[in-house]
């Protein structure tokens, strides 16, 4: 069952076009990775998906055409976007960041979910009342992801979750992501430089080059493909 289906996605910043017609999809509960060199358009792709920049083409989420909708609308439909770096709201405390993550929810389980993420990320629990901006990069990244999950999204967009993290923290984080995916059935679309780690987590992948998809396939296939490895993944 397709959750997200993207056709001929184009977009960029003002007159500068970064994406030149991308077609891809994410199934319910699936983890998909987008790989590519710097400047390939990976971040732009996620920004177009969550409505942060205007885009052309067609974005269908859960059977509804959401092309050109505002970020607020997409957040309400169940898309959570954890942007690259600095995704936390610095002047709010750790706990407030989690609560604000549940902005679109009206149910009474928010407090229980806050506790739950504090259990998953005990580092954050220790810093509950501390301002988010004063934490280390790794802690902020964990907080940004936990905040994204607070909305109980059906699709989590993760932009370079490993950026600036120590390798051991990155591995821990990816293990957590795998657990979360199995447990909550949250689909994830992950943009990542660390191709090896990302391909082991994902079921499928797309390789992006200057705004076009140049390779796609099952994660194991991409990892085994010599050309892809050499040209794009730096493996």
């Amino acid at each position: 069952m397709t959750l997200l289906s993207v056709t001929a996605l184009a977009g960029g910043y003002g007159p500068v076009k970064v994406l030149h017609g991308l077609d891809f999809e994410v199934a319910h509960g699936e983890i998909v990775v987008i790989l590519g060199a710097n400047g390939a358009g990976k971040t732009t792709t996620l920004r177009a998906l969550s409505g942060m920049i205007p885009s052309d083409g067609e974005i269908v989420f859960d059977g509804e055409d959401v092309t050109g909708r505002k970020p607020q609308v997409l957040a309400r439909r169940g898309v959570a976007h954890v942007p690259q770096g600095r995704g936390t709201i610095d002047e709010l405390t750790v706990e407030e960041n989690l609560r604000v993550g549940a902005w679109t929810r009206r149910d009474s389980d928010v407090a229980a979910d806050v506790d739950r993420w504090f259990e998953v990320f005990p580092h954050l629990a220790d810093r509950r009342t501390q301002q988010a901006g004063s934490m280390s990069g790794g802690e902020q990244q964990m907080l940004a992801i936990a905040r994204g999950l607070m909305s109980r999204p059906r699709l989590l967009l993760l932009d370079e979750p490993s950026l600036g993290l120590a390798p051991i923290i990155t591995q821990e984080l990816f293990a957590q992501l795998g657990d979360l995916n199995r447990e909550l059935d949250t689909a994830m679309l992950i943009v990542e430089q660390n191709a090896g780690l990302a391909l082991r987590l994902a079921s499928r992948g797309y390789v992006l080059e200057t705004g076009r998809i140049v390779a796609q396939g099952a994660a194991t296939e991409l990892e085994g493909n010599e050309d892809v490895r050499r040209a794009y993944l730096g493996l």
Binding site: M52, Q72, P83, T88, E96, V100, R147
Partner: peptide, 20 residues
């Protein structure tokens, strides 16, 4: 109030969590 403070601190992330 939480929304007001969030927007003041980081408008982009605030939009992404669904705050108008």
């Amino acid at each position: 109030g939480l929304g007001l403070r969030a927007v003041a601190s980081n408008p982009d992330s605030s939009r992404l969590v669904g705050i108008g």
